[in-house]
Nucleic acid binder design. Structure first.
Lengths: 319, 319
DNA sequence: CGGTATCAAGATACCGATAACATTTTAGTG
DNA sequence: CACTAAAATGTTATCGGTATCTTGATACCG
């Protein structure tokens, strides 16, 4: 920058101002300097600026992404959220520093202006860990009375309730829930499901399954059958589970949706092309990501931000 | 750091050394300072260090991730690559700066020590654009004589050839290729496919389809049928297309694999649970990501790095 | 013409770390 | 005990920008 200043016959600070479009420089001078900078391929040193401004214009996004061939990596889930986040942050001139739980101790995270945590972790442990960094932080997941963070998430209770009402409307009365309620989000779905069914005095059966895969879904239904448990509706907390459940149900010679209604969750694109086309609860991840981003940005600017709960919608197809 | 120095009764530089585990300080002093730092919750200012060292220990990863509900965002593809990249970089003390094509002009990218570009872009345009940043760069995609970059990718020609040989072994002689060969990687698959079939004097039919979806695959097969084109084998350049093709084929009353053999590409986890279980070409993305990371790191260290072509394997299931 | 806004540009200090060189302390040696 | 090598610590300068405060020039006023 000093060189550029000499070239332009002005001082460093004037160059700085010119490049920053400051109104403190003569428009002509500014133009001249900007042209000169472009010609010489001058690039501002971001690290220096970050140091001086005590701002990195960077937000760290912490994903629970195990390096192994793990389910979460294959899910649309984090990527679509990331898409929304990225879009908003980029628009605001911020960058996304992507980190896994393990890597979050790496240096660069500390330099971030804010934190977005995707997934609270099994027992809020993730949340507590990153709290220590003392950075503006927002979390994607389920609201919880116990923590005072800004949380953005879908209305999982509503999701469960909507499915329950759907089953009630269809006259089903022996519903099954497949999933792992130790994830806060899943728990909420189950809870909403139970509450809404209780209105009609119906109690669903919980098939706890830790894996969110097709195989796991098939296994759940087979195990129901083996135990000779009757059921006429299945709410799977994920589309893959739902697909597996449908497959196993059909294998057992029962019809979907005539004998058994099935609803999944997430409305993955593949669901619409499944045979039969899958009914599912859709949450707007794109919007969620954007909201997360806007909230951190607000916090970074020192403005207040509140938790938010996004609506979900039931997409009824053929199951 | 100055405060900490005063607290410890030493100079700033000694603190710096102690925290950096430099052998230049007395082990006792080092220990004392580190304890003090921890107690007082002292955090190194990364921006200052970056400035001084002219190193950010950050690698920018540029993904072609459109903000819209686009296919790439739902694919396992970028995330698994990212997983591998992230794992290696983290292990080496580096961080991942995730950027989209659009956002890559954002400040922070310039501060990165290196660049990983996922996808060359339709006509190498992405490559050329980021070349200007003059950073160590490696690209995921297809080798090409025309560019002098370090490229890591799967052996797409081999992928095509393997499928061709599989079809030949099955005695098929009217194969169809579904996909969009204007992507360099897809082109290679097609090319390898054609070459290997040519040995037996077989010429495949190309069904060009731009979308990589189930619907698109169904559409391709229906269109073949409408045009009364005979075929007994389908090589889809993506598993979703393959699933669609199978579905449409079955709909038309033909059997898979008795009448028509189908092979997909990518071996997505869902493929194994598809009905019938999908045969597919598997590429090792995890490994690819790790390789990409290692190569940028090498370039950053000033060491040479060469392009690399990863093997692929045909997973034969029931189609 | 002195006095005061207004605008443009410069001087200086500083952000918080580390490299290079300088200095002091300690230990070892004949 | 003088002398030297090695170890431990300190001094200074610097990375490359920007905020703050000043200064100089120009314009406008009665």
């Amino acid at each position: 920058m000093a060189d550029l200043a000499q070239l332009a016959g002005v001082s460093k600070i004037t160059v700085s101002r010119a490049l920053g479009d400051s109104p403190l420089v003569n428009p002509e001078t500014r133009e001249r300097i900007q042209v000169l900078a472009r010609e010489h391929g001058y690039k501002l040193n971001i690290s220096a600026r970050n140091l001086r401004l005590r701002r990195s214009h960077t937000v760290a996004v912490i994903v629970e992404m195990k390096p192994s061939t793990d389910r979460t990596m294959f899910d649309p889930y984090p990527l679509v959220l990331l898409g929304g986040i990225s879009q908003e942050l980029t628009a605001a001139g911020y960058s996304v520093l992507l980190t896994t739980r393990q890597g979050a101790s790496a240096a660069a995270v500390q330099a971030a202006d804010g934190l977005i945590l995707l997934g609270q972790g099994a027992h809020q442990d993730a949340v507590r860990r990153f709290d220590k960094l003392c950075l503006p932080m927002v979390v994607w997941g389920a609201q919880s009375a116990s923590d005072a963070h800004v949380v953005v998430g879908s209305d999982n209770r509503l999701g469960g309730a909507v499915v329950a009402r759907h089953f009630i409307a269809l006259g089903r009365h022996r519903p099954v829930f497949i999933g792992n309620p130790s994830h806060p989000e899943i728990f909420e779905r189950l809870d909403g499901f139970i509450d809404a069914l209780a209105v009609r005095g119906i109690k669903p059966l919980l098939m706890r399954r830790d894996e969110f895969t097709v195989d796991s879904g098939m296994d759940a239904v087979r195990s129901l059958h083996a135990r000779k448990v009757g059921f006429d509706a299945i709410f799977a907390c994920n589309d893959l589970l739902a697909m597996g459940a449908i497959r196993a149900t059909l294998d057992l010679g029962r019809s979907v949706p005539a004998d058994v209604s099935v609803v999944g969750y997430d409305d993955m694109p593949l669901g619409a092309s499944f045979l039969p086309p899958l009914s599912s609860v859709r949450q707007d991840w794109q919007e969620g990501g954007m909201l997360l981003a806007r909230k951190v940005l607000a916090l970074i600017e020192g403005e207040p931000a509140s938790s938010e709960c996004l609506p979900v919608s039931l997409i009824v197809r053929s199951t």
